[in-house]
């Protein structure tokens, strides 16, 4: 059974993303939104871990949150999908359960 993991805190402020990456199984989806979207960008200290996780998991980032923060959707880590709210809903529907890493 696949899980949709959601993370909404910056990895530079909290360990939520780190812990999530440590508990995501192959085939799970990880949704980055609100302050977590910075983790999706190229050139951050987390980029390598995200790229690595994207090999086994579907990693998505909410476009609206990138845009609001002036972060370029074209510059996300390779393998990360930029999605909208409807895509977020689809992710929730496509997975058996949701784990919100609050």
């Amino acid at each position: 059974m696949s899980i949709l993991h959601t993370v909404n805190k910056s990895p530079f402020e909290r360990a939520n993303l780190s812990s999530c990456l440590g508990h995501a199984n192959a085939g799970d989806a990880i949704m980055l939104y609100e302050d977590a979207v910075i983790a999706a960008m190229n050139g951050t200290a987390f980029a390598a871990r995200i790229a690595d996780a994207a090999k086994g998991c579907k990693i998505c980032v909410l476009g609206a949150d990138l845009k609001a923060r002036g972060l370029d959707p074209a510059n996300v880590v390779a393998g990360v999908s930029v999605i909208d709210y409807a895509g977020f809903v689809d992710l929730a529907a496509d997975n058996a359960s949701v784990n919100a890493w609050l």
Binding site: S2, I3, H23, A24, A96, V98, N99
Partner: peptide, 16 residues
């Protein structure tokens, strides 16, 4: 940690 991840995958509802 690996077994914890596996266990999470067996759940119907997870509240973190």
């Amino acid at each position: 940690r690996a077994d914890m991840a596996k266990l999470m995958g067996e759940m119907d509802v997870i509240l973190t």
